[in-house]
Amino acid sequence: MSKPSTAPAPPGKRKAAATTAAGAATTLAGADGAAANSGARLKRGTTAVDLRIYRAVVNAVMSHRLPPGTHLGEADFCELYRVSRTTVRKALQRLAHDHIIELRPNRGAVIASPTPEQARDIFAARRALEREIVPLVIRHRTPASLQQIRQALEAEDQARRTGDRASWIRLGGEFHLLLAELAGNQVLLRFMGELVSRCSLIIALYESPGASMCENDEHKELMTLIEQGKAEQACALIEHHLLEIEGRLRLGEPGRKINLAEALAGL
């Protein structure tokens, strides 16, 4: 990757929402996840049922309905989806491979709980990745790709206006993943899928309670810079955006108990 940008953050008041950039409910981490999410053929050995379980857990995590540390009982999945433990274990193994859950001895599967040190490393990696993605989006931009970005922003605004926090979180993450897709580099897209999902876990763990929904001004400003072909300013903005998100986080432990059936309802 290129040397990190040292350009100063763009002036003006920033209202980046911590959850907007990091929640990605339909993101399936890794290359397999990206393919599954777009409807491509399943990975060898993957069935529609364990893929459904995988997606449901990822969606619930990205929407912050399953916070870090939540225990995932195999029996609960068997009852919810009317499947065998073998099928459930396949889905859990895949989730563990993509860092969504941890398989712990004598405790089973739990939603992953990144440490503060891991959180800093993950955000640093994401900033480096997005600095590579944004210039590629500008280089490959077309009227069609710009329209895709506009539609993504409109969907975010609609969710915010209606107070649909879960969708707003999900769509905020999808905005960043759309940029990765429009960059035209499948390796970057794969890495981005994993980082976005892991950032959502971090935010679920360390987000200040009662964080309010606010305007996604920086997404809109980024769209303007992409349209204008201003790569340097766009890179500075994306770095500022992610640093501000990270800066809002605080150490803490999730305290609420989760009902798995309620968290996965409709997913």
Rank of each mutant, 00 (worst) to 15 (best):
T86C: 07
A25L: 00
L177W: 03
A25K: 01
N259Q: 09
E232F: 10
L182P: 15
G247L: 04
L189D: 09
L195H: 14
R65F: 09
E244P: 03
L237C: 07
T27C: 04
A265I: 04
V196M: 08
E253C: 02
A261R: 15
R141E: 02
Q93M: 12
C199Q: 12
D50T: 01
A125P: 01
E130L: 11
R55L: 06
S63F: 02
A29C: 13
A144R: 12
A17K: 02
M192F: 05
G229E: 03
I100T: 15
R139D: 07
L243G: 03
S63H: 03
R165F: 09
L195N: 11
T46L: 06
A211T: 07
W168S: 07
S63D: 02
D121V: 12
L251S: 03
H97S: 10
T26P: 01
T162D: 08
A180G: 09
P105V: 12
Q233K: 14
A236T: 00
R52L: 12
A48H: 11
E207F: 06
E244G: 13
G252M: 01
H219A: 14
L195A: 15
P135H: 11
R52M: 13
R82V: 01
D217M: 07
I226M: 05
L242W: 08
A263E: 01
P114Y: 05
Y206M: 09
L129R: 15
A144L: 12
D164A: 11
R131K: 03
R150F: 03
R248Y: 14
A25G: 12
M62I: 05
R248N: 15
A17E: 04
Q228V: 01
G33S: 09
I245G: 15
A21K: 06
S208C: 07
S2N: 13
A75E: 11
A119W: 00
L72N: 09
A40Y: 08
M1G: 15
A211M: 02
K3W: 14
F77C: 09
V58H: 13
R52W: 09
L103W: 10
S113T: 02
C235Y: 01
L51G: 03
G108E: 01
A234W: 14
R139F: 04
S197K: 10
K13I: 01
A35I: 13
A234S: 14
A91Y: 06
Q118N: 10
A152R: 08
S212A: 13
